[in-house]
Design a protein around this nucleic acid. Structure first.
Lengths: 330, 330
DNA sequence: ATATTTTTTTAAAACGTTTACAAACCTTTC
DNA sequence: GAAAGGTTTGTAAACGTTTTAAAAAAATAT
């Protein structure tokens, strides 16, 4: 039923290995014979079986990409770029989404292995599986945050937090808010940045969001809950949000309650996704293009050159894109 | 280097075929031997090579998913659901993005074939490749719109357009706007819906957006251009947008110019993505869950049961979710 | 002419599985 | 105690490629 190199060989009156050579552009094939083979291939529409190639070559030209979630447009912009850049380089993308479930995460990694991926790009759900992933014989790289004993690439979140803190302080703000899930490097940077500038972050101004991957409406729910409990207002004049959706939802929530952005409250988000651009939200820029290119370069270098140097942690520098949601001094 | 069934066999003191039987849970293996095999597998962490399995079984358990673009959150919600549901059913996702380029689209399909996917789910860039895709020996299904000689599933866009038209008319509107790329079924339904209700759509109220997949900022640019040319205002009191982003961008654009939504203009978007939910935009709902489930059911039925009945076109019914961007009569 | 080198071709062994078939081993049963 | 039956096991072929090693053919030199 299915057409294979064997039939091509028969039709072109050569041996199978000759067909293979032609397909792979190997030297030492008579010009005329090669022509005949190509014609037959064209005529019958033969497409080589990559499962067989993978088996024989021990190379699949597949990259496993594991996302935590898709509700954040940032990850989507990332995967879009990843797909096109990988394809350009001759690799295809096998996609998994862990929904921040460490068990699913590990299963996905196992699946990648079973599928013989040449490399894996992982946005981890936490540190749960980092250790064992780093021990795998397959090149793997962690994106969007730096993790320790593994190749990783990400913005310098600490620095980003500090940068925002400094901006706020220099613009005259005295009280500060933060929207995010459990305290992370962004928050760490933010609060220590405040300290370095002689002010203190007040814990009650931390709007804690439940960690969630599937349902972004919890964000608004948690923000509303916070605002209700706080009496419909807020004890700070500027606010840093851990991503653009949070920034947007926070903005909508306080505007619904009559506060004005940026007059009453300045807001800065994170990721600089199209959401921030559309909505005019100031945001810490993620250089997606640079990130993807660097990631693929490193990963494919490991894949193709069997380099086994120490894992590296690549930190990218944050920049702030100012829009109408914040009123900052230059 | 790489560990195979052969070593497992040796270590467990059985033949390779026995190992295979154990792994696949086949009957006729001595309980004690099976136990031994499982222990060895566990101990050395053996994972069967799916490339070899694919080759032998002529079944990859991979589904090729081809998207046009990712800027529209609707497609993202779709792919997220597709990934999780496929995984639940034992299939993995190979992802391609065509960026509405018919050549890339066809290359992706060829790649799917080479990769031995069991089925393909395609959001097409147009009709360019539909014909030849429908002729492939691999089950394929087109999503989000109905296309003719191929399995397809999508909202009834005509009906959706009519529904919106009717809603607007019944709510007392007399002038109507539309935001979208080249006229499609949504617009067709919308304008014929108006006609059926005794009113006419004025061509000058069609805000034409350049077809684009990579850069959503063109949307705002085109809307601004239209508004400038129209003197900063608009000749209609209600507007239907072909997707939620367009609705959102249009809303922002007219609000920036001092018009009020919904007091001056009612807006209804399309897809009912989280964007619409967050921003309070009325929108025609896409039943993503139902769509994905129906798609997979049909596709996997074709894959697993070799059913070769005629292609079907499945039409889903639109419903309208009303939010604060429109002021409609019940 | 033949010997030598070079080019082109083929046959066959892998890659890691699954599976049809046959062999070996137990039980029963008469 | 042998025939019949059922389990369990192993051998080997196959899936569709790539690639090595060797054979064949062609080209060149002597």
């Amino acid at each position: 039923m299915k057409i294979t190199m064997k039939e091509i060989a028969k039709l072109a009156n050569v041996s199978q290995s000759t067909v293979s050579r032609v397909i792979n552009g190997n030297k030492g094939v008579n010009e005329e014979a090669a022509q005949r083979v190509l014609e037959v291939i064209e005529k019958v529409g033969f497409i080589p079986n990559k499962a067989a190639q993978t088996l024989k070559r021990s190379k699949s030209h597949i990259i496993g990409v594991l996302l935590t979630e898709t509700y954040n447009p940032y990850f989507v912009e990332l995967i879009d770029k990843l797909e096109s850049e990988s394809r350009k380089r001759g690799y295809n993308i096998l996609l998994h989404v862990s929904n921040r479930n460490p068990i699913v995460e590990w299963e996905s990694v196992q699946n990648f292995i079973a599928r013989q991926v040449d490399g894996m790009i992982i946005i981890p759900s936490g540190e749960y599986n980092i250790e064992r992933i780093s021990k795998l014989p397959i090149p793997s790289i962690v994106m969007t945050q730096n993790w320790k004993p593994i190749d990783s690439i990400g913005l310098d979140h600490i620095l980003a937090g500090k940068m925002v803190a400094e901006k706020f302080v220099l613009s005259g703000h005295k009280t500060f808010g933060f929207v995010g899930t459990a305290p992370d490097e962004k928050f760490l940077g933010f609060s220590s940045g405040l300290q370095e500038n002689g002010v203190e972050f007040a814990d009650k101004n931390y709007i804690v969001l439940q960690e969630t991957s599937t349902n972004n409406f919890l964000i608004r729910r948690d923000i509303d809950a916070y605002l209700e409990q706080a009496g419909g207002t807020v004890d700070f004049t500027c606010c840093f949000a851990a991503n653009d959706i949070m920034a947007l939802e926070f903005m909508r929530a306080i505007e619904d309650r009559g506060m004005k952005v940026p007059e009453d409250i300045s807001i800065i988000g994170f990721d600089d996704t199209y959401l921030a651009k559309i909505m005019g939200i100031s945001s810490v820029h993620q250089p997606i293009e640079e990130m993807v290119n660097t990631t693929l370069e490193l990963l494919l270098d490991r894949v193709e050159n069997e380099v086994t140097s120490e894992p590296v942690q690549i930190k990218l520098n944050p920049t702030l894109v100012e829009r109408s949601s914040s009123n900052l001094k230059k």
